[in-house]
Write a protein that binds this DNA or RNA. Structure first.
Length: 533
DNA sequence: CCCAGGTGTCATGGC
DNA sequence: ATGCCATGACACCTG
């Protein structure tokens, strides 16, 4: 009975899950359908089952009574791709039972763990005393005046040791495995390669060949909140089973629960177990070594908009970093001397225009990827940099996009020197011309499209006219043929006074404008024509 | 390496 | 005269 109840609960979970997942199917009164009555009976039962699933609160218990014999038929249906309305496992009693059993075991384990934790915490606290100055728990001094060596000494009870192990595990779960200083020999034990991660300074100094200081810095930056647990720091701890179940994967899972899907720079953590480094995915914006190297804000010479553009491309973090480096070394990124007229800088060979880097006599940055985007960015940033260098009190955007009147008004409100005016004019000209060129090309493309459309229309018109002409020619030929036949027929019927027929070669029929038809001798006609000439 | 297409820029002409 | 716009031409980049 209890089992039935539990199964009902479990099944309800399945139903609710399905319901929430949009698989709103159900079944009602399944138990009332005789089992094993053939496909049609099962189909009815399935239909009812779908109804039940659609209304999960409407009698879940019935679902459990789907007879075991039905599973065979459900299997058949399932193999034939017939929509069961839910996953096959939902029908499977053993599957549900298994799931439930696992769930129950998990709950029991959790309760057991919590209880043990409480007991062990009490035991631990019993060995600690509260430091009233720092508010921290510190180990009680043993009668000898030494702190309790709870893990390594034989004195502590097995319970205490387990307690600390549990604490360690809990701590690792909470902090991602970081633990404070431990200089006892156990630290050197390769079996504890993860567990006793010593304090960072020691790692940097003692194991520099294993774990480079850059990583340590990164590590510290990444997890500033992971302060060492002082109340444990003076204890010798032991975690006999950590090396067996605390592998690199769990390490990463625990350590970086929130950055799993983050676009990242891979950092190799060689402090891991014997099989090599742990590839740690860390956000390139928080802790990547590249960032940390230049993390002093040394993107010198870059405008805010540049930074925004860079920041807005998280997907290309690495290339952007290289861009930052390259660009940040461009002397042009620095402010040019005010004595140099910007127009002189801007002037390029009429037909030998080069990249801005060339015109300033500096080699291009070594990268080649995504140059198109960089060009526009560089152009913009160069204009902005120059505007900044000449202390022009407007943004490039304003300079380019303001209407003439507003622009003139803005200019009149500020006293600009010649260099500033020249630069502003250049920026505005380039910006306007860029837009104009874009519009021009757009129009050109539209014209091409329109002309192609016109061409197609004209081709169709031509074909239509060709067809009509062919048709008309054919009709004309037909009419000519009919006229010729009629002509000969008329001649055949005509007779002179002697009753002889007229020859078409000697006479012709001609019609005047009023419709009268005359029989005209061809010779005479020729004669008349000659006479006329 | 070549090629086609895209883009920024300059020069020029028209309004 | 000046500014703006349209467009051809060129250089360069990218795929």
């Amino acid at each position: 009975m209890a089992k039935t109840k539990e199964l009902s609960k479990d099944t309800r979970k399945n139903i609710v899950d399905l319901h929430q997942a949009g698989k709103t199917e159900s079944a009602i009164g399944i138990s009332s359908i005789p089992p094993c009555c053939g496909i049609s009976a099962v189909a009815i039962r399935l239909a009812l089952f779908r109804v039940l699933l659609a209304v999960p609160e409407a009698g879940v218990g019935a679902l459990l009574e789907l007879r075991f014999g039905d599973m065979d038929l459900i299997d058949i249906l399932w193999r034939q791709d017939i929509d069961l309305g839910a996953g096959r496992e939902v029908f499977d009693y053993y599957h549900r039972q298994k799931e439930h059993e696992l769930q129950r075991q998990r709950v029991q384990a959790e309760e057991k763990r919590l209880q043990q934790q409480r007991v062990q915490q009490e035991a631990l606290l019993a060995q600690l005393q509260l430091d009233e100055e720092t508010g921290e728990f510190v180990p009680r001094l043993a009668p000898s005046g030494q702190p309790l060596q709870t893990a390594t000494s034989a004195a502590p009870s097995q319970v205490t040791q387990q307690c600390l192990n549990m604490e360690m595990e809990n701590t690792q779960e909470q902090t991602g495995g970081y633990l404070p200083t431990n200089t006892t020999p156990e630290v050197q034990d390769p079996n504890y390669s993860f567990y006793p991660l010593p304090n960072l300074e020691e790692v940097a100094s003692n194991t520099a060949d294993v774990c480079p200081p850059e990583f340590i810095n990164t590590f510290e930056e990444s997890f500033p909140n992971m302060a060492p647990l002082d109340h444990l720091s003076q204890m010798t701890l032991k975690a006999p089973d950590l090396s067996t179940h605390f592998n690199a994967d769990t390490f990463c899972d625990i350590f970086y629960p929130d950055v799993v899907n983050t676009k990242v720079t891979s950092v190799t953590l060689p402090c891991g177990q014997g099989n090599g480094g742990v590839s740690v995915e860390a956000s390139s914006y928080s802790s990547s070594p590249e960032k940390s190297v230049c993390g002093d804000g040394s993107f010198g010479g870059y405008s805010d908009s540049d930074m925004e553009e860079m920041d807005s491309n998280p997907g290309s973090a690495q290339s952007d970093y290289s861009e930052m480096f390259s660009l940040s070394f461009q002397p042009d990124g620095l402010q040019p001397p005010l004595s140099v007229l910007p127009q002189q800088q801007d002037k390029k060979p009429k037909h030998g225009k080069t990249e801005p880097d060339d015109e300033t006599g500096h080699s291009k940055p070594p990268f080649t990827k995504d140059k198109k985007r960089r060009r526009s960015e560089k152009r913009l940033s160069r204009d902005e940099q120059r505007a900044k260098a000449l202390r022009i009190p407007f943004t490039v955007d304003m300079i380019i996009n303001l209407p003439v009147d507003d622009f003139n008004e803005m200019m009149s409100k500020h006293q600009l020197n010649e260099a500033q005016l020249a630069l502003v004019r250049d920026i505005r000209r380039r910006g306007k011309n860029k837009v104009a060129a874009q519009n021009c090309r757009k129009r050109k493309m539209e014209n091409i499209v329109e002309l192609e459309y016109d061409m197609d229309s004209l081709k169709e018109e031509k074909e239509r006219l060709q067809t009509e002409k062919t048709k008309n020619d054919s009709s004309l030929q037909n009419m000519k043929q009919q006229l010729n036949t009629l002509y000969l027929e008329v001649f055949r019927l005509l007779r002179d006074e002697e009753g002889k027929p007229y020859s078409p070669s000697e006479y012709s029929l001609q019609q005047t404008t009023d419709g009268t038809v005359f029989l005209v001798p061809r010779i005479k006609k020729t004669f008349i024509k000659k006479k006329d000439n």
